[in-house]
Amino acid sequence: MDWRAWHDQYDLADSSLARRLKVVQQQVGAALDGCPPGPLRVVSLCAGQGRDLLEVLDGHPRRADVRARLVELDERNTALASAAVRAAGLDQVEVLTGDAALIDQYRGMVPADVVLVCGLFGNITDEDIRRTIAFCPQLTRTGGTVIWTRHRSAPDRVPLICDWFERSGFERHWLSRPDAGFGVGVHRFTAEPQPLAAGESMFTFVGHGLLKQRGSGAG
Rank of each mutant, 00 (worst) to 15 (best):
V24E: 02
I129T: 12
I124C: 04
S44A: 11
L120S: 03
R130S: 07
A112W: 07
E55V: 10
I133N: 05
D33K: 09
L54Y: 03
C46Q: 08
L40R: 04
L120I: 06
A79T: 13
V71M: 00
G119S: 14
L90I: 03
H60F: 05
E94P: 00
Y106F: 08
H60N: 03
D91V: 07
L32E: 04
V117Y: 06
A64D: 14
D91R: 13
E75V: 15
P61A: 14
F121A: 12
A134W: 05
A100F: 00
V43H: 01
G34T: 00
A112P: 06
R69W: 00
V115Q: 02
L90R: 03
D113M: 06
R86C: 13
D104S: 10
Q138M: 15
G29F: 08
G119M: 15
Q92I: 10
Q49C: 00
A134I: 06
L102S: 09
A88Q: 02
D126G: 14
D74R: 11
C46E: 03
L40D: 03
D113R: 01
G29M: 09
G89Q: 07
V85Y: 04
A101V: 01
A87D: 15
V85G: 05
P137T: 10
N77R: 04
D99P: 00
E94A: 13
L54F: 08
D65W: 06
Q25L: 11
V95D: 02
Q138C: 13
A30R: 12
G89C: 05
H60D: 02
A81G: 07
L45T: 01
Q49G: 13
D99N: 07
E72D: 10
R130T: 04
P111L: 11
R63V: 13
G34L: 00
D65Y: 04
A88D: 03
R76I: 09
R130M: 08
G59K: 15
A134R: 11
S82P: 06
D52F: 09
Q26R: 12
P61W: 11
L32C: 06
T78Q: 07
R63M: 13
L40T: 02
D128V: 01
V117C: 15
V115A: 09
L96V: 15
R107N: 14
I133Q: 07
Q138R: 11
D74Y: 08
V93C: 07
R76T: 12
H60S: 06
A100T: 00
Q27C: 03
R63T: 12
A100N: 05
P61I: 09
R51C: 14
V95S: 03
P36E: 09
L70N: 07
G122N: 15
Y106I: 04
Q27W: 09
S82M: 12
V66W: 02
A30N: 00
L45H: 02
P137F: 01
L70M: 12
D74A: 11
R41P: 00
V43S: 01
Q27M: 11
L70V: 04
A83T: 15
V117Q: 05
D104I: 12
V24N: 01
V85M: 04
Q138F: 10
H60A: 05
N123S: 15
R130W: 13
G108V: 02
G98V: 09
G38A: 10
S82W: 05
R107I: 15
C136H: 11
